[in-house]
Amino acid sequence: MTTSIINSQKVNNDLGNSDLRLKDIIKTLPRECFQQNRRKAWMQVLFSVFAVGLGYFILTITPWFLLPIAWIFTGTALTGFFVIGHDCGHRSFAKRRWVNDLVGHIFMMPLIYPFHSWRIKHNYHHTHTNKLDEDNAWHPITPEVFADWDKPRQSAFELFMRKRLWWVGSIGHWAVVHFDWRNFKTKDQSSVKLSVAVVVLFAAIAFPLLIATTGIWGFVKFWLMPWLVYHFWMSTFTIVHHTASDVPFVAANKWDEALAQLFGTIHCDYPRWVEFLCHDINVHVPHHISTAIPSYNLRLAYSSIKENWQPYLHNECQFSWSLMKQIVDQCHLYKTDVGYETFNEYYAKR
């Protein structure tokens, strides 16, 4: 883990007092970072289709005792589908909007993820990254909010963290947030309805057909288990990108856009095969500096950011079970202007 030149306390002191602007950071990036390359974009598409196809082929021939390995590979490859849809949602896959929308729907469809629902909510996350009570991705719960919950909800959240169930977090987010168009502005509801209809129609055709041809076990083997692996990576990427004991979430009146995107976004290294299948989505800092950077240019952009803005970057980390244990053991409740406290610390004050 590299050592950051500044610490979180300095970042907290700078919040609301910084002359740093996001546009100043963007100006230092090489112009190539923003250039869309159709060949690279469609090569990513072909690679992901090949990887997912290979995964399903392996699932058809592998003995039962090797199925977990095949599920992990196939689910990780399916995460690459999501990353392609992710680029489409930010309009960084293609210059034509209809191409982004079409490709985004196609690649999120097998994941039963409504494209426009996710696109709209995710762009809101980029606009309010690490802004307390506004960020709609993986945001911390304050002691005040926790105290207002009823006992069953408190117990469920505490169980979720103490039992280290972060890996199912994105399933709840997917189910609760993305299918009810009433949660969206009136101008966006028609787009949301379209995306919901697309995935519902896909499920209505694909799931019965899969069950009819392979049985319930085939549905579990070929769709459910890879889908759960995909959500493992979705949950893991999401929590790791913006969660550490020293990463501040601040109120709107103290929030600084540039500092939130630089210090509040964490670069984490994963096994190279995971990064390869997932199109370098772990190289996340440049994506928060500008969503116009295609995934195949993230490493180039990050090299430039490290060269020019290293003092404002959070420590890099490496994915491991000890890292996830550290996050879910320490980052329970968030006290405004103070930081995280554990459930034990919270109850000790009651």
Rank of each mutant, 00 (worst) to 15 (best):
V52M: 03
V52H: 03
G53K: 04
L54Y: 10
I58E: 04
I58M: 14
L59S: 07
T62W: 05
W64V: 11
W64F: 13
F65K: 07
I69Y: 05
G75N: 10
T76R: 02
L78Q: 14
V83C: 06
V83E: 02
R91D: 15
W98G: 05
L102H: 03
G104L: 03
F107D: 08
F107A: 09
F107Y: 12
M108E: 06
M109T: 12
M109S: 14
M109H: 01
M109A: 15
P110T: 08
P114T: 07
F115E: 03
H116F: 13
H122K: 09
N123W: 08
H125A: 10
T127E: 11
N130A: 09
N130I: 01
D133W: 12
D133L: 12
E134A: 14
D135Q: 14
A137R: 01
W138N: 11
P140F: 09
I141P: 00
P143Q: 00
E144C: 00
V145M: 11
V145R: 08
D150K: 15
K151P: 00
P152Y: 10
P152W: 09
S155W: 02
S155K: 13
F160Y: 15
M161Q: 14
M161I: 10
M161T: 06
K163A: 13
K163P: 01
R164N: 15
L165N: 05
S170H: 12
I171H: 07
H173C: 05
H173Q: 12
